[in-house]
Amino acid sequence: MEKRELTFNNVTKKYKDITALDDFTATLEPGIYGLLGPNGAGKSTLMKCIADIIRPTSGSILYNGKDIYAQGAKFRNIISFMPQDLGFYPSFNAMEILHYFALLKNVKLDKEQINQTLDNVNLSEYKKKKVGGFSGGMKRRLGIAITLLNDPEILILDEPTAGLDPEERVRFKQLLADMSKDRIIILATHIVSDIENLADNILFIKKGKLIDTIKGRD
């Protein structure tokens, strides 16, 4: 199997007078990477750059040696991004949301698979309920289900455990740990305990700069 490697080469992102990312350079291999930093450090900006929501002002991001922006939809096919602000169409139910995102992600899902996916995140009994009536935790679990739909090579998760109860948090961490062997998982959270027990490597970011990288749970 081709070695998976995500490389950041002097990535800088500027918004008028604000430098959100400043010469960010790193190489990520399969495993879980925790992003730690204060508010406004550049964590979300970095994630959006990887997800091709925004483009860096300068620098490049390569996946297996190829520019991710040049690949376009081909790269987006192998990633999955769960943003911090998670919204849904209120008139859709959980099954419809999953079906909708499966179409967006080029994934063919039958009813049984949708049911199984909802079962994995403990939402089976709410599958026909409109998402507009979901709690924050239920929306987060649905977001996790969507993230895992296309079996991505790169997972980008911004505050994935926000709103989850302790049991769900443990379940989610176990799921990530199982998946991390051959995937690059980038996780941003304010909950330090989530990162220190889970992440293989922790990246400290401040004012857009990568300050330090330390080993995690090992």
Binding site: P83, F101, L104
Partner: peptide, 22 residues
């Protein structure tokens, strides 16, 4: 603008079919 209205644009636009095809 429904994706922006319902704050789902980051999720949608990061998918392979979430731009031109959408």
């Amino acid at each position: 603008t429904s994706e922006s209205t319902y704050k789902i644009s980051n999720n949608v636009h990061s998918t392979p079919n979430g731009r031109r095809k959408l």
